[in-house]
Design a protein around this nucleic acid. Structure first.
Lengths: 140, 140
DNA sequence: GATCCATATTCCCGCGAAGGAATACGAATT
DNA sequence: AATTCGTATTCCTTCGCGGGAATATGGATC
């Protein structure tokens, strides 16, 4: 039963937060860590959970893994994700995540994924000399 | 987190079917058994699960327990139940339940809960001499 | 008060999921 | 080749859930 699988994916807070954030556009794991303020293992495992069930897709970008919602969603899934966002709009916790997401960089600086630009992933003070990096993406 | 609790309630097929059926109106356990074709323990336990989480309410009616959706639903819950029904409308399994529900008695014969009338709960051939009985109710 | 019925609860089992620590992996840099 | 960095996976433990069998409960009937 397709529907139950969807709800199984939705019945964990971390995954709800992940999906809520992802609805704004693709994101890499390190950004998830910053936005959700959760340890890497946790994020990574929940993303894997969602991936194996087809709720998210990912693409490698050098060292970074960029996660995003699938381009094509089943009607049920689309409906439920919309419903989730409706609810999240009125829930402070989810809004805080979105606020932190926005702080990662102004919407304009939100670079494309395909072409690597500044990421902001690296810890506070550290002159990173690396060239390629992931980024937040434009709204889907 | 309110939302997660809701999804936890929705991530089991039996409970989804229960809620889908309940959206049509109050129902007693024995009718659930007929409609869902599931054993009594299963039905009863899932109803208890939903009850402790506030997704359903129940009221005793002689020997029968009448379950129904709460009159007042939180916005999140209302939205999600609506979403569930949208999805269920396109899912054969759920429609079959509704078909069996309708077969329990024509919509007109669907008696009020408060005043006991014919139930149809009792097994095939058995002249029940009991007077009070539960019934399906009008749409909420 | 004994019995019958509809329903609830208890006891059992097996399973899968969540979380964390440690470790593995793959790409890029040096 | 070795290191670094971002991320994934493994191993472990704990916990709650789903299912079924058996039993309990509570109201109604006799």
């Amino acid at each position: 039963m397709e529907l139950v699988k969807i709800y199984e994916c939705l019945c964990d807070l971390t995954r709800l937060r992940v999906l809520n954030v992802l609805a704004q556009g693709p994101l890499c794991v390190c950004h998830f860590q910053e936005v959700l303020r959760e340890p890497q293992v946790k994020i990574s495992k929940h993303l894997a959970y969602l991936r194996t069930r087809g709720l998210v897709e990912c693409e490698r970008q050098g060292n970074w893994m960029i996660y995003e919602l699938p381009a094509k969603l089943s009607p049920e899934l689309k409906r439920n994700l919309a419903c989730l966002q409706d609810c999240a709009r009125e829930t402070p916790a989810f809004q805080k995540d979105l606020a932190r997401l926005r702080k990662l960089g102004p919407a304009e600086a939100v670079a494309a994924i395909a072409d690597g630009r500044g990421c902001g992933c690296e810890p506070p003070a550290k002159t990173s000399s690396r060239s390629t990096a992931p980024a937040r993406a434009r709204r889907s």
